[in-house]
Amino acid sequence: MGLEDLYREIILDHYRSPRNRGELPPPAHRVEGFNPLCGDEVVLTIEVDDEGMVKDLKIGGQGCSISQSSASMMTAAIKGKSAAEAREFIEAFKTMMSIHSKELGDDEHGELDQIDPDLDLGDLEALKGVVQYPVRIKCATLGWNTLTQALDELSA
């Protein structure tokens, strides 16, 4: 188990060149997320149209390579999807994080297709190495928890 499993090239690429970085102006919905362990803060701004489509979303704030790249990949995956599809992505991603965390000590990464055969997480699969480093799971899920909160607030 080496660092290259954690810091995959695609992760470093999203860290160096984050996608959808910044903040959308009002009336975009704005939610702040905190990682109490390290003090990282993200700001997610999102626009969902009347058909429930995520028209645009951006991520601002500060964080480590794992939290920033995960959030960057998340925006790329979610933009243009429906809110319902976004929630499926959230579920699949969190399952990837938690299923493996239950298998700590097991060097095998397990099979993603056990989770949801129809959903392709794409680049996000690069983050599955994170589960070997339990303390970093909260970094990887920071943006996703913030998105969940935003979607909950928008549908309330």
Partner: peptide, 12 residues
């Protein structure tokens, strides 16, 4: 370098 990334490399 973010402190989390820094200490991760240091741990190695």
């Amino acid at each position: 370098i973010h402190p989390h990334d820094l200490t991760q490399i240091m741990d190695q």
